[in-house]
Write a protein that binds this DNA or RNA. Structure first.
Length: 732
DNA sequence: GTGGCCTCTCTTTTT
DNA sequence: GAGAGGCCAC
């Protein structure tokens, strides 16, 4: 068979990785070194050169997007569908396994996936039942505790019961109660998917054996992002019979906060037999200036496997640094530069604006709107996470399974229909007392006259509503079911009654959901393509609901547009023009991470990921003052800027009228004055301006030395101010 | 039971 | 600045 097409265009190292003899291999692949390409070609190599059966290949990634792309590229390379191959996310594959082996895994056949929001609600309820003060015991922390231990493979029973630590003991109680509730309701959260399928391996050697016989080649993408349970799962599955081919980059490990273990890369070499290592260090993406910056920055991290990216590409332009006087100015600058990129013949598609936190996107979005530049925002609230969409899904869930308590609680009084907290509480109690679902409890409660007249009528109407809907949509297509739920339940009317833009947006989202349902059957993008023997029994409706939980619906329709996203979601992507916005201490590196050990290095890796997204031109921008959480804050430029070699950088000065130099102006001593003063050098004559809320800045030009008075409207302001020359822009 | 208004807190990243 | 929860009038 002619296999040259698999090797064409690969460099030597890449070929080494693709054609490595069957056996365990670790590919340490730097940013932009063709990682995905190599992985895809490896699969093709296995099939065409090694004669591997596609059904014996399992490829795991972390995001649905990556999985879909991988499958697409493999199929293009092999020139045909590879249905028998398993390609998916860890969660998706675990889910598939549990759907097929539900009984062996100790789950009810119709177990439901609990997404992050459901989980939080459930934990809150557990904590309320345990009489824990919500102020003192934030539910989020309990959720973190639970997930953290599950990610490490520990159930409540595996944890020490009598610990001196009240924090531990209390959370353990919550964990236990939560586990019990999940078991009763047949609920499986994200971490549980992994944990349980790992346990399935351990407890059912026959099933493990079946899959070990089947999967001979395991490929793992983004290996640095695996957590303990994923690693363990993989190790057990591989056993001694399969080879593992893993690609990763320790410098791009940015998910330590949710349990990812870079150490897995090191453990891999210890735990698996004869692991060969291939390094991909030639970068095909960026200019050498950009690479030099990235290398210098990441060199500040102590814990690294060590690797140095290099490129044949020329220097390219320096990285441009812009210091906005506030976040609005920063945003406007980014939009301006994007516009001129487009005017010079570039495409909006080429441009990405990256930031540390989603909250930063708004001002940038507004700046793009003002200039009429098309843009697309990734992240934030995803489609399937929006309240109105979740409400509609809950109705669909109830139609499919009446005993789905999570869904029941969610919509029993949404839209409001006279079933208040008290009544719901009563239903819950009946359910708990009798060990039945809330649906059943509501029914029995009515029959036995346990509710007041008004409540009984309201509940009865709700039960009937659901039953009627279910009857009406029996033979309907998925999108008709959705439509029926949205209309008949009164959700559409309820949400569109909401005032302002919000109501309009909700309405549109509900319509969008109907569209999504309509398209669902067509291009079924399941985490795994089931083969005939394995296809589950689930109805289309149930499959859709699973998908909604597992794949938050990263939703974007076509059209060229500049992209805005967090640094985290930019991993794996590349753009000719990249802006990294908000390069400020406190924001990036993020203040929250200061205290936790090791987190600064992770922030730095995040910066490394950001820088290496850029192909031709990179901008760092920051704002000297920024509105954050509703109030003004002043931040120093990020330390990461100083970690980049100075000769890679060039400061942008706006027009001729800006020349700015700033100093800490200081001040401190209360007795000094009610006016803060300091000498600030600004190149040019400046008069005065206002900016921010009631803050007046006055300056008088004396050539190079200008005396600036900073009057804060707030008493006792103790900080310093920065001086701006471009004052005509102030306050807009 | 509902809806409006108040205050409070919490601000990261997401399969 | 937004979302959640508490409180009060209807």
């Amino acid at each position: 068979m002619d296999i040259t097409h698999i090797l064409d265009g690969l460099n030597d190292r890449q070929r080494d990785a693709v054609t490595a003899p069957i056996g365990n291999l670790l590919v340490v692949a730097g940013a932009g070194s063709g990682k995905t390409r190599v992985l895809v070609h490896r699969i093709a190599w296995l099939v065409e050169a090694e004669g591997a059966s596609p059904g014996g290949i399992l490829a795991v990634t972390f995001t649905n997007k990556a999985a879909a792309e991988m499958r697409g590229r493999v199929e293009r390379l092999l020139e045909g569908p590879a249905r028998a191959m398993w390609v998916g996310t860890f969660h998706g594959i675990a889910h598939r396994l549990l759907r097929m082996h539900w009984a062996d895994a100790g789950l009810p056949q119709n177990f439901q996936i609990l997404d992050a929001d459901d989980q939080l609600r459930l934990v809150k309820r557990v904590m309320r039942a345990l009489d824990l003060d919500e102020q003192k015991w934030p539910a989020r922390q309990a959720v973190w505790f639970i997930n953290h231990h599950k990610d490490e493979g520990r159930r409540a029973k595996d944890l020490p019961r009598n610990d001196a630590d009240i924090y531990h003991v209390t959370h353990l109680k919550v964990y236990e109660a939560y586990e019990e509730l999940c078991a009763q309701g047949g609920l499986v959260d994200f971490a549980e998917l992994l944990l349980r399928s790992h346990e399935l391996w351990l407890e059912r050697p026959d099933i493990l054996d079946h899959y070990q016989r089947r999967f001979k080649h395991l490929l793992v993408d983004e290996f640095q992002d695996t957590n303990s349970i994923q690693y363990a799962w993989l190790r057990v599955l591989a056993g001694t019979s399969a080879d593992v081919w893993a690609v990763g980059d320790d410098d791009q490990s940015i998910y330590g906060w949710r349990g990812a273990k870079i150490e897995n890369i090191l453990s891999f070499r210890k735990d698996f037999a004869d692991v060969q290592t291939v390094r991909l260090e030639q970068n095909y993406r960026s200019t050498s200036t950009i690479l030099r910056a990235a290398n210098a920055l990441i060199d500040n991290n102590a814990e690294r496997l060590g690797k140095n990216l290099w490129t044949d590409a020329g220097d390219g332009d320096p990285i441009l640094v812009y210091s906005g006087y506030n976040d609005l100015d920063e945003a406007r600058f980014i939009a301006d530069r994007t516009q001129s990129w487009i005017q010079r013949g570039g495409s909006a598609d080429d441009v990405a604006v990256l930031y540390r936190s989603n909250a930063q996107s708004r001002v940038i979005e507004e700046a793009f709107l003002r200039l009429d530049i098309p843009y697309r925002i990734y992240g934030g609230l995803r489609f399937f996470e929006r309240a109105e969409v979740r409400n509609a899904l809950a109705y669909m869930r109830l139609i499919s399974q009446r005993h789905a308590d999570v869904a029941f609680e969610r919509v029993v009084n949404t839209p409001p229909r006279g079933i208040g907290a008290k009544t719901v509480e009563a239903i819950r109690n009946i359910a708990r007392a009798n060990g039945v679902s809330m649906w059943q409890a509501a029914k029995e409660g009515i029959a036995r006259g346990l509710f007041t007249g008004r409540a009984a009528a309201a509940i009865g109407a709700f039960l009937k509503l659901i039953d009627d809907m279910a009857g009406n949509v029996k033979d309907c297509a998925l999108h008709e079911i959705a439509e029926c739920c949205i209309e008949t339940s009164g959700l559409m009317a309820y949400h569109s009654r909401e005032r302002g833009e919000q109501g309009i947006a909700r309405r549109e989202n509900l319509e969008e959901l109907i569209t999504a349902c309509r398209q669902f059957g067509g291009e079924l993008v399941l985490p795994l393509t089931p083969t005939g023997e394995e296809a589950g029994q689930a109805s289309e409706l149930e499959e859709f609901l699973d998908k909604a939980a597992l794949d938050a619906g990263e939703y974007q329709s076509g059209g060229t547009a500049a992209q805005m996203m967090t640094l985290h979601s930019a991993k794996g992507l590349e753009f000719p023009l990249v802006f990294m916005a908000g390069m400020e201490e406190g924001l990036f590196p993020n203040r929250q991470t200061e205290r936790e050990p090791g987190r600064l290095e992770e922030e730095r890796r995040l910066a490394y990921v950001g820088i290496t997204r850029a192909m031709q031109q990179l901008y760092f921008t920051y704002a000297e003052t920024r509105r954050l959480h509703g109030s003004q804050s002043h931040n120093w430029p990020s330390r990461f800027l100083q970690e980049v070699p100075e000769d890679c950088l060039q400061e942008v000065r706006m027009g001729g009228d800006v020349s700015r130099q700033f100093r800490t102006l200081h001040n401190g001593a209360d007795d000094e004055a009610d006016q803060d003063e300091a000498g600030v050098r600004i190149g040019q004559f400046v008069t005065h301006a206002t900016f921010g809320e009631g803050v007046v800045l006055q300056a008088e030009g004396h050539g190079d030395r200008t005396r600036v008075q900073v009057n804060f409207s707030r008493a006792g302001a103790k900080w310093l101010m920065l001086a701006y020359a471009n004052l005509k822009t102030v306050g807009d």
